[in-house]
Design a protein around this nucleic acid. Sequence first.
DNA 1: CAAAACGTTAAATAACTTTTTAACAAAATA
DNA 2: TATTTTGTTAAAAAGTTATTTAACGTTTTG
Lengths: 189, 189
Amino acid sequence: MAGDPNAEARQSIENAKDLVVDSLAETMDLYGITRSAGTLYGTMYFEGDMTLDEMREELGMSKPSMSTGVKKLQEFNVVKKTFRRGQRKHTYVAERDFFRFFSNFFSHKWEREVHLNLESIREAQQQVNEVLNDEAIDEDVKKEAEEMHQILEDSKPYYYWLNRLAAMVRSGEIFDVIPFEKPNSERDT
Amino acid sequence: MAGDPNAEARQSIENAKDLVVDSLAETMDLYGITRSAGTLYGTMYFEGDMTLDEMREELGMSKPSMSTGVKKLQEFNVVKKTFRRGQRKHTYVAERDFFRFFSNFFSHKWEREVHLNLESIREAQQQVNEVLNDEAIDEDVKKEAEEMHQILEDSKPYYYWLNRLAAMVRSGEIFDVIPFEKPNSERDT
DNA sequence: CAAAACGTTAAATAACTTTTTAACAAAATA
DNA sequence: TATTTTGTTAAAAAGTTATTTAACGTTTTG
């Protein structure tokens, strides 16, 4: 047993890193990001900017996997392409500021939720309105349409609210109303 | 063509409902809820309380599917078991208030995120501390450990902040700082 | 300008999840 | 207490998503 202490120490550090990468990936899994994309993010989080080949090496996966993984993470705005001078290969960097991660990720999702549902509500209400305006329809059917219309109408305030929340989160205004304790070091824009 | 106007009207209403159910399901898909569970939620949202058999009938799926689907939705706190008197079968009801849906869903997720990651950070820091406290370790390895420790330390303020946000959302305090416009009708506790 | 390197796309395979059918256990009723 | 009904669990089937290998087009460099 007991080989080189430095080698063991490095192993410990790698181990600690894996521990956090795993829980990061599990966290992201909660929000619908696949585990492998989460693991990729976690790895990039610790390594700083990486090329696809470095990712492949680190994770032991294929290059196309890395390519699609990075692309997916870019969609969520949590990974960006970077320029590393004197480097032919493209490099990518993970968003290291979790506050910004949160902002990018959730504002994006919430905006999409609002848009998607308000649009379908608009269409749906239009359809039931046609029923309501039709003379030839019986009262009981109209009542059904009326109820439907009302349920949809009642849900709108939620989407308006969510839209405001998304805007506040995207702009960073949310940190005015719910401040965070600064760490000892800086936090730039 | 042009059959019974009432039948056509009912069809229109069903159509409108499906439209909204679909976008609701797509929305939930954004947050890692499977589409079929989302569809189930949407259906319950419109129908009010339902038995498993009613769900099966409405969605044309098997009963075990409904059972597991309901269970999953219960985990997210967006469906509850109800008591319908004179009814032997169990009935379930979907959370109709989207504000409460939001509160239940996201506070649950965020609390889990905080717990999971703070725990792994604690363990990871413990491991790197052992390296830092070991006399036999070279400076360059210690420096690596130091960096690791710092990265983890710097991430903590985010989790503390998220924890406060989760608490505010769970308690409803969030609606004091970001109010919503009431619809014309009531909004009870 | 030719050869190599890089990243992406396409097709095939593998892994995983969802869904169903079937069997089972628990509860209620007669 | 026996029979029926209800809900869940287990195993099989189907469907979907992730991953890889292979091929392609583009860019770079010698």
